[in-house]
Amino acid sequence: MMTPRLTLGPVAYHWPADKKIDFYAKIADEAPIDTVYLGEVICSKRAPFFDQHYSEVAERLIRGGKTVVFSSLAEVMLKRERKATKALSELEDYEIEINNAAGLLTIDGRAHRIGPFMNVYNSQTLGYFAHRGANHVCLPVELPSSSAALLARTASELGVGIEVQVFGRASLAVSARCYHARAHGRTKDNCQFVCEEDPDGMPLTTQDNQPFLRINGIQTLSHSYVNLTDEIPAMVDMGITDFRLMPQDIDMIEIAKAFAAVLHGEIAPQTARERINALEIGAPFSNGFWHGQAGHRRIEAMGRSLG
């Protein structure tokens, strides 16, 4: 069995450039992460703020021993989004992850990864993409373990990596409309980048004062953080090869260390969970999707050590 890899998904939020540069510098130097996904996946309007920094950030991460992958936009509609998608699919020096079918038109058999927005729910879809050059697939966050296990088996036969998000808020929806702008009485075209004010998303609370969702521009995320520490041993057994942490505005180095230690069999999932709990993140943890139940739920799993 291959050594499982820890990955860091693309930053979904609109963090200021300096914050992102510092974040990736720390990741490069301190985080036991194997693969880092870069790129603006949510809103094409944000891209110009960071475009000039990517090559420097990527170099730094590569010097830190990480594999760097560039992720494409989830929603492609406008001219600038079409251009950005085309440019990414022609990127020569890095691996790429495709998040919208627009990126597949000109891929021409070139090796690529398939991102979580591409809806790989079954082995037929996986096989189709693999035969056209996909070498790695990140599954949708809502997919239950019963289906992920079957997909992992198919992926192993095809020699394709299979990735599951194990930490961070779940992406629940994307829209053409910007809900950050709407909350501030603006529209997407004159948003003035208000999303920058909420580095971990804008909370939506029910009228019963129950925290429910988080808004990130055109994206809606869960209030709860997906946390599959307890499930990792079973996931490794079923053949999941890559374990994705989604960047949140918290101590991601500590999160990465805890997950890496579980993946490498150094500590029990329960110990990792206690270390993560000590960070007092301010949101509940959930694993319902993985167990085929309501996504917000926290199901007690039987954690055991990989050691």
């Binding site: 809502e142 869960s222 309501a294 917000h296």
Partner: peptide
């Protein structure tokens, strides 16, 4: 509908039943 169709897991998050699946 407000969300991009085929990319919405809001119902599944609240209920355990998925719009897509």
């Amino acid at each position: 509908g407000l969300m991009v169709e085929g990319r919405c897991s809001l119902t599944n998050y609240a209920t355990g039943l998925s719009t897509n699946m």
